[in-house]
Design a protein around this nucleic acid. Structure first.
Lengths: 343, 343
DNA sequence: TTGTACGCGTTATCAA
DNA sequence: TTGATAACGCGTACAA
């Protein structure tokens, strides 16, 4: 298998009797080059199949026109849609996208941050692993002026770009929606309290109860490890076997909420009459389950696009512009059939 | 914001009174370097925060230790799981993963192939856009000896690695499963016949009917553009309003199959008694819908891992080893409640 | 076992 | 408007 020799700007220079610098400038639309030359160079490049070498350009410029992504799991509806949004915006701007997943483990997150750094990404978009509590592995980026955008699952303290929803308000709204449907004993499926998203959703839940003069019953607040389907089933069974079972559940994600619907039905409870349920994320399954799951919208695509935009814009900025900028997106209750109509 | 100077092998060389080449070799575990020196170099590198520059190494070696991915849509269950598999295998081998999506448009696919090439990926993993019929944009890779793995949606003619399932047999099995449940008038939701996957599934369907002496009724074979939920609803309505409606549907994907279940129920048909339905892919929604959707397994994670493996192994091979190697994975009927029990 | 010297393809600086 | 030259960081052939 004979490998064809690649065409470089030197070859183009020889062919056209120009210097390599002129070729380079022409290909980059440098203003000092005449339109005619630019046209000629580009046409010839096309004709002979010239393709730029991003590695060389990246080395020379010390940046790769690449955005690195670091998320817990690639194959979750929210995450894959987030990435789709990032890819779309990045691609339009001529940027590439490198992906990596931490499987929710801090150690893997650290290792992946390293390799992304080694590829000299122009920026990093991160959604934190469940248990990450130290942020030293992001310092190398900050030290080099490489922008980091934390998205959805963000650190409390780290100074950086952030793209989030208002989880507190979302949790509050979700709970209030249940209260307005007449629910009085509302349970909560709570995610890891290390992560802002779950902590804030819970706070919103608690405050909504308080504000409506409903007691906070700790036995109705179930701590989850991963908010999986199986965990959801177990928790639902436990709740519904209580002497005084709850009349509603606010789950911090849709997966556990859907499992609660199925489990409750199997146990002979009717949803939403005996047990109203609201989830979080608006995953595809929430539309399919019966009764359809009420939930909180989570604008994944938009969050992805904004995250990418932050990085692309950063390149235009002055060195000492501050890079702490928090974008908070709106969410809303999507009322479906798993909660009761509002009085 | 002061940007710290990056540490290079030259800095390490100066610090340790070695030549840069020794440092380079030590970092790469070159056999000519003593264990002691290697240890010293690596420890020092760690201490002073040295990080290799993949761009420089890639330029030098003319390969980037990066796998490029080109798929129609990133946020589909099958695709995102496929990518998760690729990422896992690639990461383990020290490879990075670049992603891009074509939105099922040939033009975007072509443009993305170009940019991935410009990044000098070590290999390319492709699932074709719905309408791609020319494959010239892959020639540049082949010409340079860069391996291409086509996965799931593959070209018929292009000489390359392929990782697929046996769509013909899968379509046959799905149809047979319906027949064994006593169905006699089986409709088919057919995808674009440009793509092997849908063409073969349909062939399997047709042959299963023939083999069981059931007539092929063209009015029961509905051509779909994208196999979307909306298309599925429309098709189901049309079928169920026929004078002699079908008693079963084999849908080429789960999305349309689920919409068929919901639509049929809404129209007063009971599933599977009046209408049995089987889908394809085993998407998460198939477990949630009621009745749960019978479907065909689609080993996304495994296909991803194998695809990555093909590329990683290719690097070890001799130049003129043939690179046409087709991996065909097994699939099976997952019988759930939307089809009738086998007699 | 280690060092010297060069080149990978590109772009920025300086000079013409 | 264009050209010559150096440099980005690394790996390797050749020499010692």
């Amino acid at each position: 298998m004979e490998v064809k020799k690649e065409v470089t700007i030197y070859d183009l220079a020889k062919t056209l009797n120009y210097s390599p610098s002129t070729i380079s400038r022409a290909l980059n639309n440098h203003k000092s080059i005449s339109k005619k030359t630019i046209k000629l160079v580009k046409e010839t490049a096309e004709k002979v199949g010239y393709r730029p070498n991003n590695l060389a350009a990246g080395l020379r410029n010390n940046k790769s026109k690449t955005i690195g992504i670091l998320v817990p799991h690639l194959n979750r509806p929210f995450v894959s849609t987030l990435i789709s949004g990032i890819e779309e915006s990045a691609r339009k701007a001529g940027y590439n996208v490198l992906i990596s997943q931490s499987y929710d483990e801090a150690e893997i997150e650290i290792a992946n941050a390293r390799t992304l750094y080694d590829s000299r990404v122009s920026g990093l978009i991160v959604s934190l692993a469940m248990q990450t509590e130290l942020y030293d592995h992001f310092k190398q980026f900050t030290d080099q002026g490489i922008p980091i955008v934390f998205v959805d699952r963000v650190p409390k303290t780290y100074n950086s770009y952030k793209v989030i929803i208002d989880n507190y308000t979302a949790g509050y709204k979700a709970t209030k929606h249940l209260i307005q449907g007449g629910c009085k004993r509302i349970a909560h499926f709570a995610g890891s309290q290390h992560r802002n998203v779950y902590e804030d959703r819970k706070k919103g839940y608690v405050d909504a109860l308080k504000e409506h003069n409903l007691p906070i019953d700790e036995s109705l607040i179930i701590p989850f490890k991963t908010l999986s389907f199986e965990e959801g089933e177990k928790a639902t069974k436990k709740l519904l076997k209580m002497e005084q079972p709850p009349d509603a559940i606010f789950s911090a994600n849709d997966t556990a909420a859907v499992s609660a619907i199925l489990c409750a039905k199997k146990m002979g409870f009717s949803v939403p009459e005996d047990l109203a349920i609201i989830g979080f994320n608006d995953d595809p399954i929430s539309k399919i389950v019966e009764p359809a799951l009420s939930t909180i919208s989570h604008p994944a695509l938009k969050m992805g696009k904004i995250s990418a935009k932050r990085i692309l814009e950063h390149e235009q900025k002055e060195q000492d512009d501050l890079l702490t900028e928090v974008s908070v997106l709106n969410t809303e209750v999507i009322a479906r059939a798993s909660t009761r109509p509002i009085n």
